Computed example of a mutant assay.
Amino acid sequence: MSKELYRDTANGKLSGVCAGVAHYFGMEVWLVRILVISAFLLGGNFLVLLAYIALSFMLEKQPANYVESIKSQQEHKLKNKPWQAGQSPERLLDTLERDMASLEGKVRDIEAYVTSDTFKVNREFSKL
């Protein structure tokens, strides 16, 4: 799925512009907020305010299915630097162990079906 820039109103404080920009660039939301506030306080008052308002009107609201796709991508992403979005190595290992346990159960179910008499009967009927 290609990256698109949306307003993330679910994780946003005002209109979701900072959260959307953070997701687009793969950064933590808190860092983007600090950068915007710092730029505002350090002299870019009018430009930062104008850009934020313009983006809040120009960017579309994030669709519901987009949130799930981002979440599934970030669940398995390792955070190398503090400002990157993702998980710490410990949490990522826990997530991967949980996913592998779930997959192991599914593989066991498939093996049980393939070795059962039901599978053999269904295969014979499909050959007719």
Rank of each mutant, 00 (worst) to 15 (best):
S15M: 14
Y52T: 03
S126E: 12
E124R: 08
S15I: 10
E124K: 08
K77I: 08
L96E: 14
F125T: 05
L14R: 13
K13E: 09
L128P: 05
I53S: 07
A54S: 07
L14T: 08
K13G: 10
K13T: 10
Q62R: 13
I37E: 15
A51R: 07
L93H: 13
R33K: 09
R108L: 04
M58P: 01
Q84P: 02
Q73L: 15
E111F: 04
T115S: 15
E4H: 07
V21C: 01
L93R: 12
A54V: 13
S56A: 07
S69M: 13
L103Q: 12
V48P: 05
D117R: 15
G44K: 02
S38F: 08
I34L: 09
F46S: 10
S116P: 03
V29T: 12
E104V: 02
E68C: 12
E111V: 04
R123I: 00
L49A: 06
V114K: 13
A39V: 07
R108W: 05
R98M: 08
K61T: 06
L50D: 00
A10C: 12
L92Y: 04
F46H: 10
S69F: 08
S56L: 04
S56Y: 00
V29M: 13
F46L: 08
P63E: 12
L103M: 11
V36R: 06
L96F: 00
K106I: 04
E4V: 09
I34M: 10
L103W: 07
T118H: 09
V32A: 02
Y113W: 12
G16M: 06
T95M: 10
C18I: 04
E97K: 13
L49N: 06
M58F: 12
V36S: 06
L47T: 10
K106Y: 05
S2V: 12
D117M: 06
L42K: 15
W30I: 04
K120H: 01
W83H: 10
D99P: 00
D109P: 01
R108H: 02
G86N: 00
N11F: 14
E75Q: 11
V48H: 04
A85E: 09
E4L: 09
F125R: 06
I110R: 00
L128A: 08
G12Y: 03
L42Y: 06
E60T: 10
Q62E: 14
A22Q: 03
N122C: 13
D8Q: 07
K77W: 02
A101C: 06
Y66T: 11
K77P: 01
I34R: 14
T9R: 12
L93P: 05
N122D: 15
E68I: 10
L42R: 14
K120C: 03
Y24V: 01
D99R: 11
M58C: 12
Y6S: 02
E60N: 15
R33F: 00
L47Q: 14
A51H: 07
G105A: 01
G12W: 00
I53E: 02
V107Y: 05
I110W: 01
L31V: 13
V121A: 14
H76V: 14
